[in-house]
C-alpha cells in the first residue's frame, strides 16, 4: 500500500493503518530501535509505541514522507528508552559509542534548551549535511542517525572499517569547526 493511502487510513481512524504500517515499516523501524537498544524485545516495544504516537499524531499531521516521519518517532522513543535504561544501568547498543564519538564535535558545556536556538541549530545542521559529499553524508547519517555499527556501514558501502572510521572522524572534525564558528 502506498504511503498516501496509509496516512489516509490514520485520518479515517481505521485500525488497519497500524497493520499496514507494521507490514510496510515494522522491520525498518525495529532496525532503527534495535541499533539503539541492542534488544529485539525492547525494540518491539518501542515500535509499538511508535504506532501509538503515529495514531495520536495523525491527524493533525499529514506527513509527506511517512518512513522518515515514523523513523524519527522511533528514534526519539528509543533514545528516551535508552536513557531510562542507562539511568538504571541497563543501556546497551551502539548509542554509548555514538555519544562518545559525538563528544568530539561539542564543547560539552551548557545544554540547548531554548527552542529558537534549537531550531536554528537544526537549520545549521541541515546546511552542513547539504555541504557534504553524498557518500560522506550517507555514512555520517548511517552512523549518527540510524546508529549502524561501523562494521555494518563498512558492509553496506563496500568500504573497510578503517575507511569508515576515518571518514567519520573527518566529518566530525568539520562539524566541530562549524559549530565552534557559529558559537555553539
Amino acid at each position: 500500500m502506498d504511503d498516501k493511502s496509509i496516512v489516509a487510513l490514520y485520518w479515517s481512524r481505521s485500525e488497519t493503518a497500524i497493520t499496514e504500517t507494521a507490514l510496510k515499516y515494522g522491520t525498518y523501524l525495529a532496525s532503527i530501535s534495535s541499533n539503539i537498544l541492542d534488544s529485539w524485545e525492547d525494540a518491539q516495544e518501542c515500535v509499538n509505541d511508535t504506532y501509538k504516537d503515529a495514531w495520536n499524531s495523525m491527524p493533525p499531521h499529514r506527513p509527506s514522507v511517512l518512513s522518515t516521519y515514523l523513523g524519527k518517532i522511533t528514534r526519539r522513543i528509543s533514545i528516551d528508552r535508552w536513557r531510562k535504561r542507562n539511568a538504571e544501568k541497563r543501556g546497551g547498543g551502539e548509542l554509548p559509542l555514538v555519544l562518545d564519538e559525538l563528544e568530539d564535535c561539542v564543547s560539552g558545556s551548557g545544554s540547548i534548551e531554548d527552542e529558537i536556538v534549537r531550531q536554528e541549530l537544526v537549520k545549521l545542521f541541515n546546511h552542513f549535511l547539504n555541504s557534504l559529499p553524498v557518500t560522506e553524508r550517507r555514512v555520517f547519517l548511517c552512523r549518527y542517525w540510524y546508529m549502524d555499527s561501523i562494521q555494518s556501514i563498512a558492509r553496506q558501502f563496500g568500504f573497510s572499517q578503517s575507511k569508515v572510521t576515518s571518514m567519520l572522524h573527518r566529518t566530525r572534525a568539520k562539524l566541530r569547526v562549524l559549530l565552534e564558528k557559529e558559537g555553539y
Binding site: 545544554s111 547519517l141 548511517c142 542517525w145
Partner: peptide
C-alpha cells in the same frame, strides 16, 4: 552544547537525507 543535544539535532535531519542515507547498493 552536549553530545546528547547534538544527537537530538541530528535526529532532525531533513527527510530526503535520511531516506537517501539508506539508498545505497553495491554497484
Amino acid at each position: 552544547m552536549k553530545a546528547n543535544d547534538l544527537l537530538c539535532i541530528i535526529g532532525e535531519a531533513a527527510d530526503e537525507h535520511i531516506q537517501d542515507a539508506k539508498n545505497v547498493k553495491k554497484m
